[in-house]
């Protein structure tokens, strides 16, 4: 690990100003991803500004429904919260499907959104990688392709975003609250991540020194019966090959509301807006579910080593929607 200075931030504005002014500085919260990447010298910050104690550790009810979750809330606490378990089960399940209890106790909600790809070439400093070192090329496209993206990828980068939590957040239309050098703002999770074709070295639209302070989930009655399913190489404690967060409402046999987001398939949690549009008003049958999933995946651009993800994603979406509608009967 490269030497660095550690600073426990005294207040939010000085923490933001410090990181905004110093390109070699980085925020530290749970550290489960950052410290690991520093050990491998994938990341080499010279200054760590510890903000874990500064950001809120509270989960609050929003007037009119919904929740405001402080960025410092641990992944464990969010997954175990009764309001989340009852009102947004897909979010609890998504968090519980990721990492281990030890890691989730350390990891924060804010940091979960900002974790870096687990693409093995990003994590191997001896290999070219446009995300780690812009302009050096992508080793993954002609390498081990099993974990790579099938949607929204670019010739520059085919890495996937590793978060499970963010997939549920995308399906729930969650909104991230930030404070940065230009003040406070909000960013919907579905607009938080940048396309790799715009330069894969920057994962998100956040500015240097901009810090996630909270995330708000709007009221969503549809989410009370929702779930998250993760398909992976091991039964537990592995990243997703494909994951699906889904919720569906049916009235008089027709789909009256639907939320679908996919994980493990793109550089960001992939909100399946095409499938949702296709399904709205259609009969809640397996044929409709299949057609909608296929419409979403028509844009897929798989590599030989990850082409299996296309039928896997389709079947997982269909299976989830079928299970949810059968349960509701």
């Amino acid at each position: 690990m490269k030497p660095f200075t550690y600073q426990r931030a005294g207040d939010m504005s000085s923490a933001v100003a410090t990181v905004a002014e110093r390109p070699e500085a980085s925020f530290l919260a749970g550290g489960t991803n950052l410290v690991d990447l520093m050990k491998m010298e994938v990341l080499t910050p010279e200054l760590l500004v510890d903000v874990r104690h500064l950001v809120s550790h509270q989960i609050q009810d929003l007037p009119g429904g919904g929740l405001r979750i402080g960025a410092g809330v641990s992944n464990s606490e969010l997954a175990a919260d009764r309001r989340v378990r009852r009102g947004y089960p897909m979010l609890s399940q998504a968090i519980l499907a990721g990492a281990s209890y030890q890691l989730r106790n350390l990891a924060t909600v804010g940091g979960n959104f900002l974790q870096r790809t687990r693409c093995m070439y990003f994590r191997d400093v001896t290999m070219p990688c446009n995300k780690r070192e812009p302009g050096t090329g992508c080793s993954a496209r002609d390498g081990q392709q099993r974990d790579l993206a099938i949607l929204g990828a670019s010739k520059l980068c085919v890495a996937t975003h590793p978060s499970d939590m963010a997939v549920a957040m995308a399906a729930l239309d969650a909104v991230v609250h930030t404070v940065g050098p230009a003040g406070e703002r909000t960013v919907p999770v579905n607009r938080l991540y940048r396309s790799p074709s715009d330069g894969p070295e920057r994962d998100t639209v956040l500015d240097r020194g901009e810090l996630i302070t909270a995330v708000e989930i709007p009221a969503a009655p549809i989410a009370a019966r929702s779930r998250y399913r993760k398909v992976r190489d091991r039964a537990s404690y592995a990243f997703a090959l494909v994951s699906v967060a889904a919720a569906i409402e049916v009235g008089d046999g027709a789909v009256s509301g639907v939320r679908i987001a996919l994980g493990g398939v793109a550089h960001r949690p992939w909100r399946a807006t095409t499938a949702e549009r296709e399904l709205f008003g259609m009969p809640a049958t397996e044929e409709s579910f299949r057609a909608a999933a296929e419409a979403e995946l028509a844009a897929a651009w798989p590599l030989p080593g990850n082409a299996f993800k296309v039928p896997l994603a389709r079947n997982t979406v269909v299976g989830m929607l079928r299970a949810l509608t059968e349960e509701a009967r």
Binding site: Y6, G31, T32, V35, S76, L103, N105, L106
Partner: peptide
């Protein structure tokens, strides 16, 4: 030493945690 095996697990302020991943 990368938070993948759990051999370093300790209780940190009462919660189990990977001691290899915290500074």
């Amino acid at each position: 030493d990368h938070g993948q095996c759990g051999a370093c697990t300790v209780l940190l302020d009462g919660r189990r945690a990977n001691s290899c991943l915290v500074l």
